[in-house]
Design a binder for these strands. Sequence first.
DNA 1: CCTACCGATCGGTAGG
DNA 2: CCTACCGATCGGTAGG
Lengths: 201, 201
Amino acid sequence: MAVSKSKAMAEEPNRRADIVRAAGQLFHEKGYPGTTIRDIAGAVGMRSGSPFYHFKTKQDMLGAVVLEGMQAIHEAVAKAAASGKSPRATFEAMLLAHLDQLLGEEGQDFAATLLHESRHLDSKVSAEVVILKDRYELMWQKALKDLKRAGLIEDDSTVARLFLMGMLNWTVQWYRPDGSKSVAQIARQLASFVIGNRARA
Amino acid sequence: MAVSKSKAMAEEPNRRADIVRAAGQLFHEKGYPGTTIRDIAGAVGMRSGSPFYHFKTKQDMLGAVVLEGMQAIHEAVAKAAASGKSPRATFEAMLLAHLDQLLGEEGQDFAATLLHESRHLDSKVSAEVVILKDRYELMWQKALKDLKRAGLIEDDSTVARLFLMGMLNWTVQWYRPDGSKSVAQIARQLASFVIGNRARA
DNA sequence: CCTACCGATCGGTAGG
DNA sequence: CCTACCGATCGGTAGG
């Protein structure tokens, strides 16, 4: 609650952002149709009619969550992809970035909602998401191509990329923050699983 | 089953089974909370109150779908596991069995609903499903152990099994029956992806 | 952002 | 399995 001084971070209460965060959490937990406006309002201390001051419809809330998740995960992974390290180190950094968005504390539910609730989007936002997703997947396809060129994997096909996405995205189903594995450990193990240990330092 | 004599297949209209099938399809398409009793009733040509002649609650319908899916996929994979072939061939047969249940025409939506809508189960059926799932996953853990013992993979840990489950179960998100890959091709490619081609005939 | 409310739809039931 | 219906809840709105 540092309101005055350098109100850089804990800014004046951004209620819209609060709603998006609460909606993301609830959409992830209970699914989009299983979440009510009253759930969301309650989670941010509002009455049931008030979220509509910030969003026109429930659909728009889903759109905001999904688009925010898409942007965040793309940005994080793109940064890792451009880090200029070796193919293996770059790949591992990308894995970590993706998992961190998906499982970490920050964008957690944005990305998870993106992956599992996108089918409930209406056509307008949906079309936008498809484009962004294609662009995102291209980054991974390129990463696989680099790994193959370096002789670290054998298969850099589209299906191989989908296998990889499956391993990454399925973590949502089993990862627990209080479990025995950290996100970084999982990323490392996944890299080894895909590449093997031939090039292991 | 096997009621009278030879009217084995196109039996007297089994309305309960019709409801389970329709419910599975709809739960998979629109999610459990997004599916209404009226949707299900409509899909089998009933009025909205009639499904309750066969099931006490909507929850019970979900339970029936999920349990049926669990049983079917377990049975199919157990059979493949016991085929007595080489570790690699057995593994590939198990992959195919799992994918066939998940993506094939038969139990299609049962298994898919199982994977994605189980969180909406109430505690009673949920507990039962957890037990069955553990038993199912044990089969896979054993398959990985056999592969490692045969020198075909390096990592047979729990997390490795979860990676594998991710690759398998994520196919629901992208597989299309009219696409360029058959289920059998995907199973084969997945085996190669995990094992590599060292032992390839 | 709240109060007060609307029409629509939901899961489920009684009675046949 | 249908007809007819119930109370509860839903997404959304008007008016302040």
